[in-house]
């Protein structure tokens, strides 16, 4: 069970959260302007990153808020968590969070 740092509430166990998939996918402003291939890209294609992955979590059984996280999918270590709308931080520059090795 991961230990996840909600930017609003602090460290909480994974069971308080739901996973929200890849982060920074923006719904097209005018989907009708997209062709089928472009729409399928938005709808289904995912980076499935092996390494540092920007992803969404929701503190569903806590404050209820969505936020973003950088997590290394090869170790499950979080490099950072940050609020929706904030830019993706540089993982190297961020403060260590729970689950980070000493």
């Amino acid at each position: 069970m991961l230990l996840i740092s909600c930017p609003y509430c602090g460290d909480r166990p994974e069971i308080e959260f739901t996973y929200g998939g890849q982060a920074h996918l923006v719904r097209p402003a005018d989907p009708s302007a997209l062709d089928d291939q472009q729409w399928a890209e938005y709808l289904y294609m995912r980076t499935n990153t092996k390494g540092v992955h920007a992803e969404r979590w929701r503190h569903a059984r806590g404050c209820g808020r969505f936020f973003n996280a950088l997590r290394d999918t090869t170790t499950d270590r979080f490099a950072a968590t940050y609020k929706i709308g904030a830019a993706r931080p540089d993982p190297a520059a961020s403060e260590p969070t729970p689950g980070t090795a000493r």
């Binding site: 069970m1 991961l2 230990l3 499950d76 729970p98 689950g99």
Partner: peptide, 8 residues
């Protein structure tokens, strides 16, 4: 018996 991620 078990060591899980993030020191659980």
């Amino acid at each position: 018996f078990g060591y899980f991620p993030h020191n659980l």
